[in-house]
């Protein structure tokens, strides 16, 4: 007798089909996921040498300059040369980093030197590659200390009690001693001179834009280039300032070149508005085309000459301010002829 075959009930069929669907769904999900794949977490990169700066702070400095060779007589290099790029700059100078990174910073190389006779006497050399002479000049001029004495022989350089600061083409360099010992300062000088000779790709050191400032009454070494805004106002980019002396008054003048006269007028209006919004009061101008603003007792003058915005910043004496303003306007007018 042949046995009857088992006939599935309705319920059994439904359950059977439903259960079969489970592995099918899993397989479908897997094949879909298989198409998109990211196996970078498994490693197997082609070459780690593509990212040399990620090896940490104390990488060998691969710049063209042999920093160790710049050690003066009686001094030797102390520790490794260090190298920093835009991402790692803060690891060396922390809060000051934005000043550089916002001004075209490319690379910082540093090297410390120590006296062979006295290991308390050290100085550290910082070489900031700022990409262009204007950028280097900007960070150089912005940080210039008030009590400083000029350093001869170099166009943009000044000393303080324990340090020497200079801008050479696209490089801004600082040589900072651990004390004001004369021995240390001599060593700093030697290294600075040797350094300038070795900075072969520094590029031209002159800043041609400085020539638009008239030299009459100009206080030497007071030029500052603001790349990203001046006097608290972000719109005053690429603005030069200089200090002038009239009788016994010091007047700070500023000039900002704009693409065209319309842009210059707009910027002048915006800056004047900014000063007023922050507490300035418009006062009667000597020249109707010019804005005169009294800002808590000092005078702010904003004017336009062709494509230039020019003005006087926080003057104490109105007459002196007017004289310098006229001087500068004349100089600019001559430029445009």
């Amino acid at each position: 007798m042949s046995p009857a075959r088992h006939q599935p009930t309705r319920l059994e069929s439904i359950v059977a089909i439903a259960l079969t669907a489970i592995p099918v769904i899993i397989l479908v999900l897997i094949f879909t996921a298989h198409k998109t794949t990211d196996i970078s977490r498994f490693g197997i990169q082609s070459s780690i040498t593509e990212k040399p700066q990620s090896w940490g702070l104390l990488t060998e400095d691969k710049s063209a300059i042999d920093l160790a060779g710049l050690a003066p007589q009686g001094f030797k290099p102390f520790g490794h040369g260090e190298s920093y790029d835009e991402e790692t700059l803060y690891e060396k100078i922390n809060g000051k980093a934005p000043l550089y990174t916002e001004s075209g910073f490319v690379k910082l190389s540093t090297q410390r030197y120590v006296s062979e006779k006295n290991d308390e006497l050290t100085f550290e050399l910082y070489i900031y590659n700022m990409g262009s002479a204007a950028n280097a000049f900007s960070v150089y001029s912005i940080q210039r200390r008030a009590e400083s004495s000029p350093a001869d022989g170099m166009p943009f350089a000044y000393r303080t009690e324990n340090a020497l600061y200079l801008a050479d083409g696209r490089y801004y360099c600082e040589l900072i001693g651990s004390s004001d010992s004369p021995l240390l300062l001599d060593a700093v000088d030697f290294t600075a001179t040797a350094l300038i000779e070795n900075l072969k790709d520094a590029g031209p050191a002159e800043i041609p834009q400085l020539a638009i400032f008239p030299s009459q009454n100009l206080i030497p070494n007071t030029f500052i280039l603001y790349l990203n805004g001046a006097f608290g106002f972000a719109g005053l980019t690429n603005t030069f300032s200089a200090k002038y002396k009239v009788n016994d008054e010091t007047v700070t003048a500023f000039i900002s070149k704009q693409p065209d006269p319309a842009a210059a007028k707009e910027l002048a209006d915006q800056y004047a508005e900014f000063v007023i919004v922050n507490g300035g009061e418009k006062i009667a101008p000597s020249d109707p085309a010019v804005k005169y603003i009294d800002f808590y007792g000092s005078l702010e003058i904003v004017s336009v000459e062709d494509s230039f915005v020019l003005g006087i910043h926080q003057a104490d004496d109105r007459m002196a301010a007017d004289i310098i303003l006229a001087l500068i306007r004349n100089s600019l007018a001559k430029e445009n002829q």
Binding site: P8, E12, A16, I17, L19, V24, I26, L27
Partner: peptide
């Protein structure tokens, strides 16, 4: 569909997986 068919299919599919 018989339940044993479902089981066999599942065995097969999971083994293939």
């Amino acid at each position: 569909m018989k339940i044993v068919t479902a089981r066999r299919i599942c065995q097969f599919l999971f083994f293939a997986l």
